[in-house]
């Protein structure tokens, strides 16, 4: 008689996660929270180091247009730091960038989604992705040596024929390193993000509505006007705001093509302007003591500004994408 081997004892039936799973879930959750921790730390540290400046300057830090640290003969240091002019400049340049860049990006996204043959589409998508991977210092170098001479010529034309419009006027015909040039460089730099967000949104347009429009005899443009734009316009606004966030935070490229002067200048063609991010690297080299703290405070302002714009933009884009499903 052969003895049958005794079967292994049945495993305990349980919903309790095993040790390996508990370790896994714990680790992954921990790392999942890491980005939240990093983001909080960034805000915390910049605010902490800039606290003295905020306390000293108060609200004037946001509105003041002077940036000076004067040491008198008696050795007394008088500080006067304000990013007002730089904030105005940042918004001005970003506005120029949006006015030029967003229409181009939307047209490009429309072409890629509804017009382009498959092969051209593939190439163009790669090109737009490549644009996003170009280093910003490359845009700066190219902007300075190639784009600026061209833009200066356009600025001359605008000044000549349209100077009766206040923004196109200038105290002197000096168009080098103006907010207009910086805005043009930024316009090219925000094209990839705005294009890819718009493309994603246009591609989510409900197919039944598109087909309904065609079935009713609409031309391609008629379909885009009556179906795609009503569906996607808020998403495109979100994409444009993501571009705005990029434009606010761009540093090196703007620094190369902008003449940073601590004065409020609303004449976009005139060669002086401001930008918070570029101002920080301009002043960083010779900054000591209090000025370093003031620059960190300026960094905090920039951080909060871009964070708010980005959060709003992401919320809008997400809502639009959801409504298509």
């Amino acid at each position: 008689m052969t003895q049958r081997p005794t079967p292994p004892a049945p495993r305990e039936i349980t919903t309790k996660p095993r040790l390996s799973d508990r370790i896994f879930r714990g680790t992954v959750t921990g790392f999942g929270m890491a980005s939240l921790v990093i983001l909080t730390l960034i805000g915390l540290f910049l605010a902490l180091r800039g606290f003295q400046t905020f306390k000293h300057e108060g609200f004037h830090f946001l509105t003041g247009v002077k940036w000076e640290s004067v040491t008198s003969d008696a050795g007394k240091v008088t500080n006067n730091f304000g990013v007002g002019a730089m904030l105005v400049g940042t918004v001005l340049i970003a506005t120029v960038a949006l006015i030029v860049g967003v229409p181009l990006s939307v047209l490009c996204a429309l072409y890629l989604t509804f017009y382009a043959p498959e092969r051209i589409k593939k190439i163009m998508v790669s090109v737009v992705d490549l644009m996003a991977a170009f280093p910003s210092i490359l845009y700066g170098l190219w902007g300075f040596f190639v784009l600026m001479p061209m833009v200066q010529y356009w600025a001359g034309l605008l000044f000549k024929y349209l100077r009766w419009i206040p923004v196109f006027n200038a105290p002197q015909p000096f168009f080098e390193r103006s907010p207009f040039v910086a805005g043009m460089v930024l316009a090219i730099m925000i094209i990839p993000i705005v294009t890819s967000v718009s493309r994603e949104i246009f591609a989510q347009t409900p197919l039944d509505r598109i087909q309904a429009a065609y079935a009713l005899g609409a031309t391609r443009w008629g379909m885009i006007k009556t179906v795609v734009f009503p569906f996607g316009s808020s998403g495109v606004v979100g994409g444009a705001m993501l571009g705005l966030g990029r434009a606010f935070g761009e540093t090196v490229a703007v620094f190369t093509v902008l003449n940073i002067v601590f004065k409020v200048n609303l004449h976009i063609l005139y060669g002086m302007g401001g930008n918070v991010a570029s101002m920080i690297i301009l002043k960083w080299g010779e900054a000591v003591g209090d000025e370093t703290k003031a620059l960190l405070a300026a960094g905090f302002i920039l951080f909060v500004l871009t964070l708010l714009v980005n959060m709003a933009a992401n919320t809008i884009v997400k809502r639009t994408l959801k409504s298509g499903k």
Partner: peptide
């Protein structure tokens, strides 16, 4: 976080 400016 992906929108944090590089200078920051």
């Amino acid at each position: 976080m992906s929108g944090v400016p590089s200078v920051v």
